[in-house]
Design a binder for these strands. Structure first.
Lengths: 83, 83
DNA sequence: CAAATATATCGACTTTTCCCGATATACCAA
DNA sequence: TTGGTATATCGGGAAAAGTCGATATATTTG
């Protein structure tokens, strides 16, 4: 999922029908591509959010998730320095 | 354990009594510090080895493990580029 | 070879993680 | 307000990971 969110336009072309990608990709789109249930995907996304890897933005009935690039940079650096 | 192996001299001073650190630290030393059973530590180390994070060198009845720094560098870069 | 020491492997049990269906909540439209 | 759609939360069963004791293997020493 994290890789998918690097290129929303390529990995979630269907979303264009009702929104752009400014705020990221909505749960339903990710769920469809993941092939897991809605509840599983929702929980997974909230875990990634609590971990700081993605950010969420509620717009109407949709929740959009997008990557927090800083977290990946930080993780990479953490592995370099601490591990 | 991976962090411990960054500074063997500091984290495993007892090993000096029978060997240096050229090949790393032996299982018994790591086990004592970890506070887990011998079998658990042995299995854990072999997993880390299969994953490429440490290397082992058998010397007599001892098996020494040391870090493979390249693997950490590679992981850091992987996160930067692929994730 | 026999005993002692260090490590590895095996089987079982416990804990954690994964994933689901059911249900709750939030928002929108008529 | 009622019904429809999107997402979140909850409780439980299945799968995986963690840990142990017992035992096997390898090596050294007498």
């Amino acid at each position: 999922m994290l890789e998918w969110l690097k290129e929303p336009e390529i990995n979630f072309p269907d979303q264009l029908q009702h929104a752009g990608f400014e705020h990221g990709v909505c749960v339903g789109q990710i769920q469809a591509k993941a092939g897991l249930t809605q509840s599983t995907v929702s929980e997974y996304l909230s875990i990634l959010q609590r971990a700081g890897f993605i950010e969420s933005k509620r717009v109407g009935q949709w929740t959009y998730y997008k990557r927090n690039e800083g977290a990946f940079e930080a993780l990479s650096k953490l592995i370099q320095s601490n591990l």
